[in-house]
């Protein structure tokens, strides 16, 4: 192929590619805009993507039961030392010793929302929610206890698959 044909071919190819670029950008021009007009649309059209990680939560069912077996894997996975699982050993009805969750302490102020704790959890006991309006005036208010008052462990039958690992 001589250099002139090469030149013409390159001319044609680059023209085509430039037109392709224009086509893509005009599509974006007419696409729905992604900007959130936040304080105004707070109660109306606010859209937070489902996977946005804003706040750690331990879901409880209707009978105030959670899935945490107090294994402490999340505490070990946390790079910031955000989570502290306080547990104690109790004997159940059959006389077996079992670790039971007392307090699940979580420091929102130190959390960097990496989701390693949720990934580590073997029972899907914790998850991240979209609740992002977490600003408070005192640091102490960010020290949260995630398990509810008087909550108990859900029976294994009701165990849910960890949605992140699934």
């Amino acid at each position: 192929m001589n250099s002139f044909t090469k030149y013409v071919k390159r001319y044609w190819r680059s023209t085509k590619s430039l037109v392709g670029g224009l086509r893509i950008s005009i599509k974006v021009f007419f696409r729905k805009k992604v900007t959130e007009q936040y304080p105004e649309n707070r109660h109306t059209t606010l859209y937070v993507p489902e996977r946005h990680r804003a706040m750690l939560e331990m879901p409880h069912d209707a009978e105030n039961r959670h899935h945490c077996i107090a294994c402490g894997l999340c505490q070990m996975a946390c790079p910031n030392g955000t989570i502290r699982v306080v547990s104690e050993m109790r004997e159940d009805a059959e006389g077996k010793k079992k670790r039971v969750l007392v307090r699940y302490e979580y420091d929102l102020g130190a959390c960097m929302f990496c989701q390693l704790c949720v990934n580590a959890c073997p029972h899907g006991a914790i998850r991240f929610t979209n609740e992002f309006e977490n600003a408070v005036f005192e640091r102490e208010k960010l020290h949260l206890v995630l398990n509810h008052e008087g909550s108990t462990l859900a029976p294994p039958a009701a165990k849910k698959e960890n949605p992140v690992n699934a």
Binding site: S25, V28, F29, R31, K33, V34, T35, Q37
Partner: peptide, 10 residues
């Protein structure tokens, strides 16, 4: 405005 629209913002 046009620049915003091309970048998918307002």
């Amino acid at each position: 405005r046009v620049c915003g629209a091309f970048q998918c913002r307002i």
